[in-house]
Design a protein around this nucleic acid. Structure first.
Lengths: 177, 177
DNA sequence: ACGGCTTTTTAACAATCGTTAAATTTTAAC
DNA sequence: GTTAAAATTTAACGATTGTTAAAAAGCCGT
């Protein structure tokens, strides 16, 4: 992020509102329409959806990450998933209208588009690992590439993220140690 | 696609070049830089990457679809995957510079962005099925939702698309019939 | 520090998957 | 149409996973 972009962001600083939440707080409930985008100052968040009574986590976010139910936020449609804190979390948040205002700034718009593309690339890489790797390899990739996920996220959430059960993850961990 | 958009596309008709390829023709080789975007008039195409000597297919395209190694095409970087015809295929194609020219048109740009978002949504749905469904359910979803994939794409390609081996797919098919 | 609750691990068994190899069917070239 | 090559199915076996249940470990509030 260069200086001119930083300045552009400062112009809109007044739009951002601070908030703090305890762990296990729903910031957005599956089926509701997203009105806010969150920027994590401190803490940890997961995105998950319900499938036959089971919670399936599919994304984790940490300090510096922006979190929103993007489609729901942009189109004002029901969100296909929930957003929930994992740790006590401090955020800055913004409503959709204010986000539109920021997007009007070309530098910020370009920056946000680039971040969206980066996230998509990471998403595709994670997806590819389901085609290419075994669950054990997927766990080892996570351990090597994003150790803070394993340090900070409860294993039950990680299991569904890897596409396996808690029991299977526990066995994999026992094999490696 | 409404009338004004159709007119906008017509303006750039002269940029599109026709080409025909036999089946199993590489339109882009993994590691090469993508220079073209293809629009399928007739036929069928797959995207795949090599992993330890095995071909892993992850997307299929049919008549009306636009196909390119998007990141490679946009950033002029090596493509992480190959693009290959499955059937004898007729396409219209365009080089990156001409695509930029078309993107300058607001209607076309909006249309292309919307299609990109649609594709991403479909991609995410496919990804979710790896977290939520068994391989058998994934096959049945494909059979119900995109029957032409099963009718036109060789089963060995479909197997890797579903994240399983050809043998396992064959067993699943035997169970269902 | 204590109890109660949640999370993680372990165990046992059935079901599914991967692997290798062979048999069968389909496809394509001459 | 015949034949060779490719694709698909079937078989057998070992490895991995899901499921259910119980045990162990960790966490939180009092």
């Amino acid at each position: 992020m260069d200086e001119s972009l930083r300045l552009a962001f400062k112009q809109f600083q007044h739009l951002w509102k601070p908030a703090s939440f305890p762990s296990k707080t729903l910031l957005l409930k599956e089926g509701d329409v997203a009105r806010k985008i969150f920027f994590i100052k401190k803490g940890c968040i997961r995105n998950w959806f319900n499938h036959e009574g089971k919670e399936i986590s599919f994304q984790f976010f940490f300090e510096g990450d922006a979190v929103a139910s993007v489609e729901s936020f942009n189109k004002q449609t029901p969100s296909p998933y929930s957003i929930e804190t994992i740790e006590p979390t401090e955020v800055s948040w913004l409503v959709a209208e204010d986000m539109q205002q920021m997007r009007a700034h070309p530098l910020i718009n370009t920056y946000l588009m680039d971040r969206a593309i980066d996230r998509q690339a990471a998403f595709i890489q994670h997806f590819f690992s389901f085609l290419r790797d075994t669950p054990k390899q997927r766990y080892q990739n996570l351990l090597a590439g994003r150790p803070q996920v394993i340090q900070r996220v409860p294993l039950q959430y990680i299991a569904s993220y890897l596409g396996i059960t808690q029991v299977s993850l526990s066995r994999i961990r026992a094999q490696i140690k």
